[in-house]
Design a protein around this nucleic acid. Structure first.
Lengths: 221, 221
DNA sequence: CGCATACTTGATAGGTTTCAAACTGAGTGG
DNA sequence: CCACTCAGTTTGAAACCTATCAAGTATGCG
Protein backbone atom coordinates (compact mmCIF):
# COMPACT_ATOMS: atom_id res chain seq x y z
CA UNK A 1 0.00 0.00 0.00
CA UNK A 2 2.80 2.34 0.91
CA UNK A 3 4.44 1.59 -2.39
CA UNK A 4 1.26 2.60 -4.12
CA UNK A 5 1.47 6.03 -2.54
CA UNK A 6 5.14 6.80 -2.42
CA UNK A 7 7.72 5.63 -4.88
CA UNK A 8 11.08 4.32 -3.82
CA UNK A 9 14.25 6.33 -3.61
CA UNK A 10 15.34 5.71 -7.20
CA UNK A 11 15.40 8.84 -9.25
CA UNK A 12 13.78 10.91 -6.55
CA UNK A 13 15.06 14.12 -5.06
CA UNK A 14 17.03 15.72 -7.81
CA UNK A 15 18.85 17.82 -5.20
CA UNK A 16 21.70 15.42 -4.32
CA UNK A 17 23.35 15.21 -7.70
CA UNK A 18 24.57 11.70 -8.45
CA UNK A 19 28.00 12.24 -6.99
CA UNK A 20 26.68 12.96 -3.52
CA UNK A 21 24.49 9.90 -3.71
CA UNK A 22 27.63 8.07 -4.71
CA UNK A 23 29.45 9.24 -1.62
CA UNK A 24 26.51 8.36 0.59
CA UNK A 25 26.79 4.79 -0.61
CA UNK A 26 29.91 4.62 1.52
CA UNK A 27 27.63 4.77 4.52
CA UNK A 28 25.65 1.74 3.47
CA UNK A 29 28.40 -0.60 4.55
CA UNK A 30 27.33 -0.18 8.16
CA UNK A 31 23.63 0.43 7.62
CA UNK A 32 20.74 -1.81 8.52
CA UNK A 33 17.26 -1.48 7.08
CA UNK A 34 14.15 -1.95 9.17
CA UNK A 35 10.49 -2.04 8.29
CA UNK A 36 7.87 -0.26 10.37
CA UNK A 37 4.11 -0.43 10.43
CA UNK A 38 1.95 2.65 10.71
CA UNK A 39 2.31 4.27 14.13
CA UNK A 40 5.29 2.18 15.11
CA UNK A 41 7.94 4.19 16.91
CA UNK A 42 11.39 4.58 15.38
CA UNK A 43 12.93 6.56 18.20
CA UNK A 44 11.60 8.35 21.25
CA UNK A 45 12.42 11.02 23.78
CA UNK A 46 15.08 9.92 26.16
CA UNK A 47 17.40 7.91 23.96
CA UNK A 48 20.69 9.53 23.21
CA UNK A 49 20.47 9.39 19.45
CA UNK A 50 22.57 6.39 18.52
CA UNK A 51 21.63 6.39 14.87
CA UNK A 52 21.24 8.59 11.87
CA UNK A 53 18.28 7.56 9.71
CA UNK A 54 17.19 7.68 6.12
CA UNK A 55 13.79 6.89 4.66
CA UNK A 56 13.93 4.30 1.87
CA UNK A 57 10.18 4.06 1.22
CA UNK A 58 7.01 5.13 2.96
CA UNK A 59 6.67 8.17 5.21
CA UNK A 60 8.05 9.07 8.63
CA UNK A 61 6.57 11.72 10.90
CA UNK A 62 8.65 13.50 13.51
CA UNK A 63 6.51 15.10 16.17
CA UNK A 64 6.30 16.48 19.67
CA UNK A 65 3.51 15.83 22.14
CA UNK A 66 2.33 18.99 23.78
CA UNK A 67 0.73 19.40 27.16
CA UNK A 68 -2.94 18.78 26.47
CA UNK A 69 -2.37 15.76 24.27
CA UNK A 70 -2.03 17.76 21.07
CA UNK A 71 0.50 16.47 18.62
CA UNK A 72 2.64 18.77 16.52
CA UNK A 73 4.35 17.27 13.51
CA UNK A 74 7.73 18.96 13.11
CA UNK A 75 8.74 17.23 9.91
CA UNK A 76 7.46 14.77 7.36
CA UNK A 77 10.18 12.60 5.85
CA UNK A 78 9.84 11.06 2.41
CA UNK A 79 12.07 8.55 0.62
CA UNK A 80 15.60 9.93 0.39
CA UNK A 81 15.27 12.20 3.40
CA UNK A 82 17.63 11.89 6.33
CA UNK A 83 16.59 12.51 9.91
CA UNK A 84 17.85 12.13 13.45
CA UNK A 85 20.46 14.87 13.52
CA UNK A 86 20.18 16.72 16.81
CA UNK A 87 21.47 15.32 20.07
CA UNK A 88 19.04 15.28 22.95
CA UNK A 89 15.68 14.49 21.46
CA UNK A 90 12.66 16.41 22.56
CA UNK A 91 10.46 14.71 20.03
CA UNK A 92 9.79 11.28 18.60
CA UNK A 93 9.61 9.69 15.19
CA UNK A 94 7.35 6.97 13.87
CA UNK A 95 6.18 5.53 10.58
CA UNK A 96 3.18 7.31 9.08
CA UNK A 97 2.27 4.49 6.69
CA UNK A 98 2.62 0.72 6.78
CA UNK A 99 5.72 -0.94 5.40
CA UNK A 100 7.89 2.11 5.85
CA UNK A 101 11.51 1.17 5.27
CA UNK A 102 14.19 3.08 7.12
CA UNK A 103 17.97 2.70 7.04
CA UNK A 104 19.82 3.36 10.23
CA UNK A 105 23.49 4.25 10.47
CA UNK A 106 25.60 4.27 13.61
CA UNK A 107 26.34 7.89 14.31
CA UNK A 108 29.74 7.16 15.78
CA UNK A 109 30.80 5.41 12.61
CA UNK A 110 29.34 8.06 10.36
CA UNK A 111 31.13 10.73 12.30
CA UNK A 112 34.40 8.83 12.25
CA UNK A 113 34.13 8.40 8.52
CA UNK A 114 33.30 12.09 8.07
CA UNK A 115 36.31 13.12 10.12
CA UNK A 116 38.66 11.15 7.93
CA UNK A 117 36.99 11.63 4.56
CA UNK A 118 36.33 15.18 3.45
CA UNK A 119 33.88 14.14 0.76
CA UNK A 120 31.72 12.28 3.26
CA UNK A 121 31.77 15.28 5.57
CA UNK A 122 30.70 17.46 2.69
CA UNK A 123 27.87 15.14 1.74
CA UNK A 124 26.75 15.03 5.36
CA UNK A 125 26.80 18.79 5.53
CA UNK A 126 24.74 18.95 2.36
CA UNK A 127 21.96 16.71 3.62
CA UNK A 128 21.87 18.66 6.86
CA UNK A 129 21.42 21.90 4.93
CA UNK A 130 18.65 20.18 2.98
CA UNK A 131 16.90 19.46 6.26
CA UNK A 132 17.14 23.15 7.10
CA UNK A 133 15.62 24.12 3.77
CA UNK A 134 12.77 21.70 4.40
CA UNK A 135 12.13 23.16 7.83
CA UNK A 136 12.15 26.67 6.43
CA UNK A 137 9.61 25.80 3.79
CA UNK A 138 7.40 24.28 6.49
CA UNK A 139 7.85 27.40 8.56
CA UNK A 140 6.60 29.48 5.67
CA UNK A 141 3.49 27.29 5.50
CA UNK A 142 2.87 27.72 9.21
CA UNK A 143 3.29 31.45 8.78
CA UNK A 144 0.44 31.79 6.31
CA UNK A 145 -2.57 33.53 7.80
CA UNK A 146 -5.50 31.51 6.52
CA UNK A 147 -5.98 27.77 6.50
CA UNK A 148 -6.67 27.87 2.78
CA UNK A 149 -3.23 29.26 2.12
CA UNK A 150 -1.61 26.69 4.37
CA UNK A 151 -3.30 23.79 2.63
CA UNK A 152 -2.54 25.24 -0.80
CA UNK A 153 1.15 25.55 0.05
CA UNK A 154 1.12 22.06 1.48
CA UNK A 155 -0.28 20.60 -1.71
CA UNK A 156 2.27 22.40 -3.86
CA UNK A 157 5.12 21.37 -1.58
CA UNK A 158 4.10 17.74 -1.55
CA UNK A 159 3.40 17.61 -5.24
CA UNK A 160 7.02 18.54 -5.87
CA UNK A 161 8.44 16.35 -3.12
CA UNK A 162 6.53 13.15 -3.81
CA UNK A 163 6.73 13.21 -7.54
CA UNK A 164 10.29 13.83 -8.59
CA UNK A 165 9.28 16.74 -10.75
CA UNK A 166 6.15 18.74 -10.07
CA UNK A 167 3.38 16.65 -11.50
CA UNK A 168 -0.27 17.58 -11.33
CA UNK A 169 -1.55 14.36 -9.83
CA UNK A 170 -0.76 13.80 -6.20
CA UNK A 171 -1.30 10.76 -4.00
CA UNK A 172 -1.38 11.97 -0.42
CA UNK A 173 0.35 9.40 1.77
CA UNK A 174 -1.07 10.71 5.02
CA UNK A 175 -4.39 11.37 6.71
CA UNK A 176 -6.22 14.64 7.24
CA UNK A 177 -5.24 14.41 10.89
CA UNK A 178 -1.57 14.29 9.98
CA UNK A 179 -1.93 17.22 7.63
CA UNK A 180 -3.69 19.15 10.35
CA UNK A 181 -1.01 18.45 12.93
CA UNK A 182 1.59 19.37 10.35
CA UNK A 183 0.01 22.71 9.51
CA UNK A 184 -1.18 23.44 13.04
CA UNK A 185 -4.85 23.47 12.11
CA UNK A 186 -7.62 21.02 12.88
CA UNK A 187 -8.35 18.14 10.55
CA UNK A 188 -11.85 19.51 9.98
CA UNK A 189 -10.40 22.74 8.70
CA UNK A 190 -8.16 20.76 6.36
CA UNK A 191 -11.28 19.10 4.95
CA UNK A 192 -13.07 22.37 4.51
CA UNK A 193 -10.09 23.91 2.75
CA UNK A 194 -9.90 20.92 0.41
CA UNK A 195 -13.56 21.12 -0.52
CA UNK A 196 -13.28 24.87 -0.89
CA UNK A 197 -10.40 24.40 -3.35
CA UNK A 198 -12.46 21.76 -5.14
CA UNK A 199 -15.51 24.01 -5.40
CA UNK A 200 -13.36 26.77 -6.81
CA UNK A 201 -12.18 24.37 -9.48
CA UNK A 202 -8.55 24.62 -8.40
CA UNK A 203 -8.18 20.95 -7.57
CA UNK A 204 -10.25 17.83 -8.12
CA UNK A 205 -10.50 14.80 -5.87
CA UNK A 206 -10.74 11.24 -7.19
CA UNK A 207 -10.61 9.75 -3.72
CA UNK A 208 -9.86 11.59 -0.49
CA UNK A 209 -6.17 11.05 -1.09
CA UNK A 210 -6.10 11.39 -4.85
CA UNK A 211 -5.63 15.05 -5.66
CA UNK A 212 -5.34 16.48 -9.13
CA UNK A 213 -4.13 20.03 -9.49
CA UNK A 214 -6.31 21.66 -12.12
CA UNK A 215 -5.32 25.30 -11.78
CA UNK A 216 -1.75 25.51 -10.53
CA UNK A 217 -1.62 29.28 -10.76
CA UNK A 218 -4.78 29.55 -8.70
CA UNK A 219 -3.19 27.31 -6.09
CA UNK A 220 -0.13 29.50 -5.85
CA UNK A 221 -2.24 32.51 -4.88
CA UNK B 1 22.14 50.97 22.16
CA UNK B 2 22.48 47.49 20.76
CA UNK B 3 25.14 46.73 23.31
CA UNK B 4 22.76 47.73 26.03
CA UNK B 5 20.30 45.10 24.89
CA UNK B 6 22.42 42.21 23.79
CA UNK B 7 25.74 41.23 25.24
CA UNK B 8 28.70 40.24 23.13
CA UNK B 9 29.67 36.74 22.20
CA UNK B 10 31.87 36.14 25.22
CA UNK B 11 30.57 33.47 27.48
CA UNK B 12 27.33 33.14 25.59
CA UNK B 13 25.81 30.02 24.16
CA UNK B 14 27.04 27.25 26.35
CA UNK B 15 26.29 24.79 23.55
CA UNK B 16 29.60 24.92 21.66
CA UNK B 17 31.90 23.75 24.41
CA UNK B 18 35.22 25.57 24.38
CA UNK B 19 36.92 23.16 22.05
CA UNK B 20 34.48 23.80 19.23
CA UNK B 21 34.88 27.52 19.71
CA UNK B 22 38.59 26.87 19.55
CA UNK B 23 38.27 25.14 16.21
CA UNK B 24 36.05 27.89 14.88
CA UNK B 25 38.83 30.36 15.53
CA UNK B 26 40.55 28.75 12.59
CA UNK B 27 37.91 30.37 10.42
CA UNK B 28 38.69 33.84 11.66
CA UNK B 29 41.83 34.05 9.56
CA UNK B 30 39.71 34.77 6.49
CA UNK B 31 36.83 36.56 8.16
CA UNK B 32 35.88 40.20 7.91
CA UNK B 33 33.57 41.97 10.32
CA UNK B 34 31.01 44.50 9.18
CA UNK B 35 28.66 46.78 11.08
CA UNK B 36 25.06 47.25 10.07
CA UNK B 37 22.40 49.74 11.09
CA UNK B 38 18.83 48.73 11.78
CA UNK B 39 17.06 47.60 8.63
CA UNK B 40 20.25 47.46 6.58
CA UNK B 41 20.38 44.44 4.32
CA UNK B 42 23.08 41.82 4.81
CA UNK B 43 22.14 39.61 1.91
CA UNK B 44 19.13 39.36 -0.38
CA UNK B 45 17.31 37.06 -2.73
CA UNK B 46 19.24 36.53 -5.90
CA UNK B 47 22.82 36.37 -4.70
CA UNK B 48 24.42 32.99 -4.80
CA UNK B 49 25.47 32.85 -1.18
CA UNK B 50 29.13 33.77 -1.24
CA UNK B 51 29.53 33.98 2.53
CA UNK B 52 28.76 32.21 5.71
CA UNK B 53 27.90 34.63 8.52
CA UNK B 54 28.10 34.84 12.27
CA UNK B 55 26.56 37.42 14.55
CA UNK B 56 29.09 39.06 16.87
CA UNK B 57 26.73 41.51 18.56
CA UNK B 58 23.24 42.84 17.95
CA UNK B 59 20.44 40.94 16.24
CA UNK B 60 19.86 39.74 12.69
CA UNK B 61 16.45 38.84 11.26
CA UNK B 62 16.10 36.43 8.38
CA UNK B 63 12.75 36.81 6.66
CA UNK B 64 10.70 36.25 3.54
CA UNK B 65 8.36 38.74 1.96
CA UNK B 66 5.04 37.20 1.09
CA UNK B 67 2.60 38.24 -1.58
CA UNK B 68 0.53 40.91 0.10
CA UNK B 69 3.47 42.67 1.68
CA UNK B 70 3.43 40.57 4.82
CA UNK B 71 6.81 39.74 6.25
CA UNK B 72 7.56 36.42 7.86
CA UNK B 73 10.63 36.20 10.05
CA UNK B 74 12.14 32.75 9.63
CA UNK B 75 14.90 33.11 12.18
CA UNK B 76 16.26 35.57 14.70
CA UNK B 77 20.03 35.40 15.09
CA UNK B 78 21.75 36.44 18.29
CA UNK B 79 25.47 36.80 19.07
CA UNK B 80 27.23 33.51 18.42
CA UNK B 81 24.68 32.26 15.91
CA UNK B 82 25.73 31.33 12.39
CA UNK B 83 23.53 31.87 9.36
CA UNK B 84 23.61 31.75 5.59
CA UNK B 85 23.80 28.00 5.06
CA UNK B 86 21.46 27.11 2.23
CA UNK B 87 22.30 27.71 -1.40
CA UNK B 88 19.70 29.53 -3.45
CA UNK B 89 18.21 32.11 -1.15
CA UNK B 90 14.50 32.63 -1.08
CA UNK B 91 14.73 35.05 1.80
CA UNK B 92 16.79 37.98 2.95
CA UNK B 93 18.65 38.97 6.08
CA UNK B 94 19.11 42.35 7.69
CA UNK B 95 20.14 43.85 11.00
CA UNK B 96 17.30 44.20 13.49
CA UNK B 97 19.11 46.70 15.73
CA UNK B 98 21.69 49.42 15.14
CA UNK B 99 25.38 48.62 15.36
CA UNK B 100 24.91 44.95 14.62
CA UNK B 101 28.29 43.34 14.01
CA UNK B 102 28.50 40.39 11.67
CA UNK B 103 31.49 38.30 10.61
CA UNK B 104 31.48 36.95 7.10
CA UNK B 105 33.51 33.99 5.90
CA UNK B 106 34.10 32.99 2.32
CA UNK B 107 32.17 29.80 1.83
CA UNK B 108 34.65 28.39 -0.65
CA UNK B 109 37.45 28.75 1.86
CA UNK B 110 35.39 27.37 4.73
CA UNK B 111 34.45 24.39 2.64
CA UNK B 112 38.00 23.82 1.53
CA UNK B 113 39.20 23.91 5.11
CA UNK B 114 36.42 21.54 6.19
CA UNK B 115 37.34 19.08 3.46
CA UNK B 116 40.91 18.90 4.65
CA UNK B 117 40.40 19.20 8.39
CA UNK B 118 38.01 16.74 10.04
CA UNK B 119 37.69 18.83 13.17
CA UNK B 120 36.57 21.86 11.24
CA UNK B 121 34.06 19.75 9.35
CA UNK B 122 32.75 18.44 12.65
CA UNK B 123 32.44 21.91 14.11
CA UNK B 124 30.65 23.08 10.99
CA UNK B 125 28.27 20.17 11.22
CA UNK B 126 27.62 20.99 14.86
CA UNK B 127 26.65 24.60 14.24
CA UNK B 128 24.40 23.48 11.40
CA UNK B 129 22.63 21.07 13.69
CA UNK B 130 22.27 23.92 16.17
CA UNK B 131 20.49 25.92 13.50
CA UNK B 132 18.11 23.01 13.02
CA UNK B 133 17.41 22.85 16.74
CA UNK B 134 16.66 26.56 16.71
CA UNK B 135 14.27 26.19 13.80
CA UNK B 136 12.51 23.31 15.50
CA UNK B 137 11.98 25.30 18.67
CA UNK B 138 10.54 28.12 16.59
CA UNK B 139 8.30 25.64 14.82
CA UNK B 140 6.97 24.50 18.17
CA UNK B 141 6.12 28.11 19.00
CA UNK B 142 4.30 28.55 15.71
CA UNK B 143 2.40 25.36 16.41
CA UNK B 144 0.86 26.60 19.62
CA UNK B 145 -2.85 27.29 19.28
CA UNK B 146 -3.32 30.54 21.18
CA UNK B 147 -1.33 33.72 20.91
CA UNK B 148 -0.78 33.72 24.65
CA UNK B 149 1.06 30.42 24.44
CA UNK B 150 3.16 31.64 21.53
CA UNK B 151 4.24 34.77 23.36
CA UNK B 152 4.93 32.82 26.55
CA UNK B 153 7.16 30.38 24.70
CA UNK B 154 8.87 33.24 22.95
CA UNK B 155 9.72 34.93 26.23
CA UNK B 156 11.09 31.73 27.72
CA UNK B 157 13.12 31.00 24.62
CA UNK B 158 14.62 34.45 24.48
CA UNK B 159 15.29 34.61 28.18
CA UNK B 160 17.55 31.59 27.82
CA UNK B 161 19.12 32.68 24.55
CA UNK B 162 19.91 36.28 25.41
CA UNK B 163 21.13 35.74 28.89
CA UNK B 164 23.65 32.93 28.92
CA UNK B 165 21.74 31.10 31.57
CA UNK B 166 18.04 31.55 32.09
CA UNK B 167 17.77 34.77 34.02
CA UNK B 168 14.49 36.34 35.04
CA UNK B 169 15.10 39.80 33.62
CA UNK B 170 14.93 40.09 29.88
CA UNK B 171 15.75 43.00 27.60
CA UNK B 172 13.88 42.45 24.36
CA UNK B 173 16.08 43.60 21.48
CA UNK B 174 13.25 43.79 18.94
CA UNK B 175 9.94 45.50 18.42
CA UNK B 176 6.43 44.14 18.79
CA UNK B 177 6.20 44.09 15.02
CA UNK B 178 9.22 41.81 14.80
CA UNK B 179 7.83 39.53 17.46
CA UNK B 180 4.53 39.40 15.62
CA UNK B 181 6.15 38.54 12.30
CA UNK B 182 8.26 35.95 14.08
CA UNK B 183 5.27 34.24 15.71
CA UNK B 184 2.90 34.79 12.79
CA UNK B 185 0.49 36.94 14.75
CA UNK B 186 -0.24 40.64 14.56
CA UNK B 187 1.71 43.09 16.67
CA UNK B 188 -1.51 44.14 18.40
CA UNK B 189 -2.08 40.60 19.54
CA UNK B 190 1.47 40.50 20.89
CA UNK B 191 0.66 43.58 22.96
CA UNK B 192 -2.55 42.11 24.27
CA UNK B 193 -0.81 38.91 25.24
CA UNK B 194 1.87 40.87 27.07
CA UNK B 195 -0.62 42.90 29.06
CA UNK B 196 -2.63 39.77 29.75
CA UNK B 197 0.49 38.11 31.19
CA UNK B 198 1.16 41.25 33.20
CA UNK B 199 -2.36 41.36 34.61
CA UNK B 200 -2.07 37.74 35.63
CA UNK B 201 1.07 38.63 37.54
CA UNK B 202 3.23 36.30 35.48
CA UNK B 203 5.51 39.01 34.14
CA UNK B 204 6.11 42.66 34.92
CA UNK B 205 7.13 45.40 32.52
CA UNK B 206 9.55 48.19 33.43
CA UNK B 207 9.53 49.61 29.93
CA UNK B 208 7.95 48.03 26.85
CA UNK B 209 11.14 46.08 26.29
CA UNK B 210 12.12 45.42 29.86
CA UNK B 211 10.46 42.20 30.93
CA UNK B 212 10.83 40.56 34.28
CA UNK B 213 9.61 37.01 34.68
CA UNK B 214 7.80 36.83 38.01
CA UNK B 215 6.17 33.42 37.81
CA UNK B 216 8.26 31.17 35.58
CA UNK B 217 6.09 28.14 36.19
CA UNK B 218 3.03 30.09 35.20
CA UNK B 219 4.77 31.10 32.01
CA UNK B 220 5.56 27.52 31.13
CA UNK B 221 1.87 26.57 31.19
C1' DC C 1 -22.46 -8.18 7.22
C1' DG C 2 -20.87 -5.28 10.91
C1' DC C 3 -17.35 -2.76 12.89
C1' DA C 4 -13.68 0.57 12.92
C1' DT C 5 -11.38 4.18 10.93
C1' DA C 6 -11.21 8.02 8.10
C1' DC C 7 -13.51 11.63 5.97
C1' DT C 8 -17.07 15.20 5.43
C1' DT C 9 -20.39 18.63 6.79
C1' DG C 10 -23.03 21.56 10.23
C1' DA C 11 -23.63 25.00 14.16
C1' DT C 12 -21.83 27.55 17.83
C1' DA C 13 -18.45 29.72 20.76
C1' DG C 14 -14.18 31.82 21.13
C1' DG C 15 -9.92 33.97 19.52
C1' DT C 16 -7.53 36.91 16.15
C1' DT C 17 -7.28 40.28 12.50
C1' DT C 18 -8.27 44.58 11.03
C1' DC C 19 -9.17 49.34 11.25
C1' DA C 20 -8.97 53.12 14.33
C1' DA C 21 -7.52 56.10 17.80
C1' DA C 22 -4.98 57.40 21.84
C1' DC C 23 -0.69 57.21 24.29
C1' DT C 24 4.33 57.18 25.19
C1' DG C 25 9.14 58.34 24.64
C1' DA C 26 13.14 59.92 22.25
C1' DG C 27 15.17 62.97 19.14
C1' DT C 28 14.96 67.61 16.61
C1' DG C 29 14.70 72.27 15.76
C1' DG C 30 12.91 76.67 17.00
C1' DC D 1 13.83 74.88 27.37
C1' DC D 2 9.92 73.63 25.12
C1' DA D 3 6.99 72.32 21.43
C1' DC D 4 6.98 69.24 17.74
C1' DT D 5 7.40 65.06 15.22
C1' DC D 6 7.74 60.36 14.51
C1' DA D 7 8.00 55.56 15.50
C1' DG D 8 6.66 52.35 18.60
C1' DT D 9 3.24 50.83 21.81
C1' DT D 10 -1.28 50.24 23.83
C1' DT D 11 -6.28 49.86 23.91
C1' DG D 12 -11.02 49.61 21.67
C1' DA D 13 -14.79 47.66 18.59
C1' DA D 14 -16.49 44.97 14.82
C1' DA D 15 -15.89 41.39 11.30
C1' DC D 16 -13.83 37.29 10.23
C1' DC D 17 -11.85 32.80 10.75
C1' DT D 18 -11.01 28.66 13.21
C1' DA D 19 -11.68 25.25 17.01
C1' DT D 20 -14.74 22.47 19.01
C1' DC D 21 -18.48 19.47 19.54
C1' DA D 22 -21.56 16.82 17.03
C1' DA D 23 -23.59 14.05 13.59
C1' DG D 24 -23.57 11.81 9.33
C1' DT D 25 -21.17 9.45 5.26
C1' DA D 26 -17.86 6.46 3.10
C1' DT D 27 -14.41 2.86 2.94
C1' DG D 28 -11.80 -1.27 4.10
C1' DC D 29 -11.21 -5.24 6.83
C1' DG D 30 -12.28 -9.12 9.79
Amino acid sequence: MAQAYVADIQGLHGSPPGSVEQVLKALDQFASVKSYSRGQQIFGYCEEQKYLYRVRSGVVRKFALQPGGRRHILDLLLPGDFFGFGSGQEYLAEAAVDRTLVSQYYRTRVEALARSDGEVAEALQMITVEAIARLERQMLMLGKTTALEKVSCFLLEFASRINGQASDVLALPISRYDIGDYLAISSETVCRSMTELKHRGIISLQGPREVRIVDREGLEA
